[in-house]
Design a protein around this nucleic acid. Sequence first.
DNA 1: CCTGTCACG
DNA 2: GACGTACGTGACAGGG
Length: 942
Amino acid sequence: MTQFGKGCHLHLIDGSAFIFRAYHALPPLTRKSDGLPIGAVSGFCNMLQKYVEDSSGPDAPTHVAVIFDKGSHTFRNDMYDLYKANREAMPEDLRPQIPLTRTATLAFNIACKELEGFEADDIIATLACQAREAGGRVTIISSDKDLMQLVGDGVEMLDAMKNRRIDRDGVFEKFGVFPERVVDVQALAGDSVDNVPGAPGIGIKTAALLINEFGSLEELLDRAGEIKQPKRRETLIEKRDQIELSKKLVQLDCNTPLDFTLDDLEVKEPDPEKLLAFLAEMEFSTLTKRIANALGAEAPVITEAKAPAAAAAATPGAAAAEAPEMPPIDPAAYTWVKSAGDLAPWIAQARQRGWVAVDTETTGLNEMTCELVGVSLAVEPGQACYIPLAHRAAGGEADLFGSDDLAEGQIPMQEALDILKPLLEDPAVMKIGQNMKYDAKVLSRYGIGVAPIDDTMLISYALHAGLHNHGMDALSERYLGHVPIPIKDLLGSGKKMITFDRVPIEEAVKYAAEDADITLRLWKLLKPRLHLSRVTRVYEGTERPLVPVLAEMELAGVQVDRNTLSRMSTAFAQKMAGLEAELHELAGHPFNVNSPAQVGEILFAEMGLEGGKKTKTGAWSTPAEVLEDLATEHDFAARVLDYRQLQKLKSTYTDALQEHINPETGRVHTSYSIAGANTGRLASTEPNLQNIPVRSEEGRRIREAFVAPEGKVIVSLDYSQIELRILAHMAGIDALKQAFRDGHDIHAMTASEMFGVPMEEMTSDIRRRAKAINFGVIYGISGFGLARNLRIPRGEAQAFIDRYFERFPGIKTYMDDTIAFAKEHDRVETLFGRVIHTPEINAKGPHAGFARRAAINAPIQGTAADIIRRAMIRMPAAIAGQPAKMLLQVHDELIFEVAEEGVDKLIATAREIMEGAAEPVVKLDVPLVVDAGQGKNWAEAH
DNA sequence: CCTGTCACG
DNA sequence: GACGTACGTGACAGGG
């Protein structure tokens, strides 16, 4: 044993922080055999394992301990009986897991220390002091700000969550003072979490200001009379005792009587047998295997005792880690289907059950250009196969010719597709996929129309929008506790990346079949929850049916005229070159106009203009908003704005769009993500066709490149003021509803009501202000935001808002009710029952305002999204037989390509569908109005 | 890979 | 009282 001293590096892990993070990060998992809650233990072990993996290398610790709290009564409670009095009670299902985390720590062979009547923080402080005195280094693994007072002289903190080291400067960033004065600041600012009172009315900022001015808390309190602000002065004088008590509460104790020494904390290798036995006892199948792998040991078999009904029932609301009938995921157990004979039983199994999970493997992520490489099927959890179809034989590196041969052990593509087609199109067999639109599009290019379908991504979206994303990796990790094989492992990344057809089939089987297996497991787990969460109608009515509709639109694409774009590109380039020369001239030297940092340097440093702000990275910030203020006086700023606009148009639109023209179809095929936006909106990617310019004259011309082929016309139909109409309905504002019924100018009406100006005397400026307020309401208005938008003083903006609420009290009520609902249920809902979770709504701090506004906006934006989704779903049947195709959606607008002679009829049909899309589920008190336009291109049609 | 900026509804 | 502020997206360029 080596004596702790110079060269030693002690790691102190805040155990309680680990436990709580693990508990809150994971769903309430239970042990399969007896229903024991183990979610927190599982997360705790994962975090320890990750810690062990990450802490090797040159900076590895020589000594380590996990420190826990013990006992609820400490010396601080003797000083102040309300200390930590507002702490919530420990959740029921966490309590039994606490002792298990000690066992887990010891199983990893890491020292595990606690002391009755002492907080972990004091033990950590004591050990850190001892280590520092002995000349060693210390890293405290915690993000608890109470520990920041210990930083310095070889002691640092590591925020494991953000993987960020915090040194003296880091502490200064947080507290505005260096570690020696942190307790002084804390004593003043107090801490609501620990119920430390501090000085009322003083937060961290003010506290740091005062401490820096006076040097120390004691000095400040002695000379409090010198403070200018009367309120602050009185507080400090009156609350002196309370502040001094607060300091004692936050001051950590470096003299905790420990019954061990630093030398007892020396890092030890874990005993594989003991560690694996513990993990197996907990029945963590994935983690057991992972650690067994890491240790080079055999993973013990986890006994599969059936859960007695009573034990399962004893933990109500607890979701089982894996549904009881699901065996652990084992990629080695999947089947390689090599022949038609191999495939037959899988088809039969799928038919017999009435469902099958399907996944396709392809050469790329673009459904329009990739090629099919294989198909995997899963019929039961653990029973999955992969049918390779176009894998290439392994060729030598220099083998430029032979490597395109097909690998052995594959059914000829067409033969396999002929066998699969009847199954994939069988109306009696549900095809389950994760993001089925992708697979359906690929297969449709091979002549297979997959139906009916279920989609685990969309099931998750209907259930959990706002809680997390809905990709397979996230879902698998979250709901199955399993990390799928990363595709990177097969394809590599960057320059050396290969396509899936080059992956050896043995490897492909594991990956591909696992995807189908996971999809099936997720389906079994999540599908039954739809009706429990009352979102079956949303899923079946507005998510799932959209898949084939979008697939058809995306496959159709929109014709884009390359010549128009490239002519514009050239023109933009010339203008930009002129502007660039002019700017270099104005600056007196050449610089990169595209670099905001350099532009800022010239404006604010070289030219010495006021109003420059820096970003958090320290570079100058030059958003358009700032440049616009300068532009009236300074040509330089005006030219930069002109340049930026052209640069944006050229790089994002006229240049990039050309790259997206599909050489085979001559058209641009966007992809819509159905589960991307939390509110129910779609998102358009590769390319994004939902942000083609329209507001500026120059930008709008880009829409001229979106054309109809010979003999056809582009038709655009868009909802007029849909979100304001929904607001009028949801908030029940009679005046607004009546205005919409009468077809009045809604913004002018609002202005007239608010400012008492008769409609005949309305000016455009007053109307503009009312319009900004109307939109502000939809966004969860704030005085600050409105002030910025209208470029008026904040007080004036607030006065507008106050008057608005006075005139339309129903809006205020709606907003308050929505927030109250969100706070109670952690979610909001649209008129159609779409659920948007608002997990941050009860959070404290800067997130709170954000969450409030999002909660106000979500039902309105989401209801509008529901309505256009419903219209889109009904559209194909409504326009069947007409010479028309629906091509694009832009949130409140649908774009069609129609034969000239069919335009009037299409407009009539589509308008009827769109205006009636809310019904019969919702009967709005306001009419929905759809405007239509037509032309040879999108610019004319809009 | 992250940040800043800017395009849309 | 302090903090940061309209809502929802995606793409591109710069810079480490």
